[in-house]
């Protein structure tokens, strides 16, 4: 492994962020806990009617996961911005988009993946049928990286501002509407026994596109937001 090479740099960034996430593994548990609490509140609000809960289960879990991810987005760049390591990343000889892609991947692994693991449990608490539950996990596996990529662009744009949780939610909503529609569409189609592969395929196509575009946009956005 040649130091300073593209691969070494990617490995270094990925390793660093995963290591940091591991050192602060208490923070990983927070979004999971949040999702658990929100999902538990729904039966209290809607009543313990199993049929009703089963009908809304897919949508509730999707939106809950989305909100939990939104809470965690702030940690994508802010700590790095505050201690100066983001500058070191931006000044590195490798393409910034690629390094940011690694950061996004590490962030997805440490925030979204635990949520996907817990999602089927949350869904069965709301009586989502087993076969729809499998589709839900599949939908989340495609939709959450897409959300991470889209969100990273917006987080980069707000990087130079004061604390900005509400603003980020406002900016993210228009972007995640199509993702929520297709992911929830797949789950409810599976629930009604209809073919559900088409919306997942659309999400997959969007993900493939965003894997290329989002890191580039994220790098451009970051350069705008940091430049004073």
């Amino acid at each position: 492994m040649m130091p300073g090479s593209l691969r070494a740099a990617c490995v270094a960034v990925l390793r660093r962020d995963l290591l940091l996430a591991w050192r602060r593994r208490g923070d990983i548990a927070l979004p999971v806990l949040y999702a658990l609490i929100v999902t538990t509140l729904f039966p209290f609000a809607l009543g313990p009617n199993d049929d009703l809960l089963a009908r809304v289960a897919g949508g509730v879990v999707l939106v809950t996961v989305l909100l939990a991810m939104l809470l965690a987005f702030d940690a994508l760049f802010r700590p790095d911005l505050e201690d100066g390591s983001l500058e070191q990343l931006m000044l590195a000889p490798q393409p910034l988009a690629l390094l940011l892609g690694m950061k996004i991947l590490a962030h997805w692994v440490s925030t979204a993946l635990p949520l996907i693991v817990i999602a089927p449990i949350l869904a069965s608490m709301l009586h989502l049928p087993a076969h729809a539950n499998a589709v839900l996990v599949l939908a989340l596996l495609v939709a959450t990286p897409l959300l991470s990529l889209l969100g990273s662009v917006l987080v980069a744009l707000t990087a130079g501002t004061r604390r900005s949780g509400m603003l980020l939610a406002l900016m993210l909503l228009p972007l995640c509407v199509p993702v929520v529609i297709f992911a929830a569409g797949a789950v409810s189609a599976a629930q009604e026994g209809l073919p559900w592969i088409a919306p997942i395929a659309w999400l997959g196509a969007a993900l493939a596109l965003m894997l290329i575009l989002a890191p580039l946009a994220c790098a451009a956005a970051l350069r705008i937001a940091i430049d004073a």
């Binding site: 130091p3 300073g4 090479s5 070494a8 740099a9 490995v11 270094a12 960034v13 390793r15 660093r16 290591l19 940091l20 050192r23 602060r24 505050e82 201690d83 100066g84 390591s85 500058e87 070191q88 990343l89 590195a92 000889p93 490798q94 390094l99």
Partner: peptide
């Protein structure tokens, strides 16, 4: 801002710098 990660050791921090900038 020194660009050091507070949760990592000096050695780990240096390895990141090497990974990015070469050695």
């Amino acid at each position: 801002h020194l660009g050091l990660k507070a949760d990592l050791s000096p050695l780990e921090n240096l390895r990141i710098a090497i990974g990015l900038y070469g050695c």
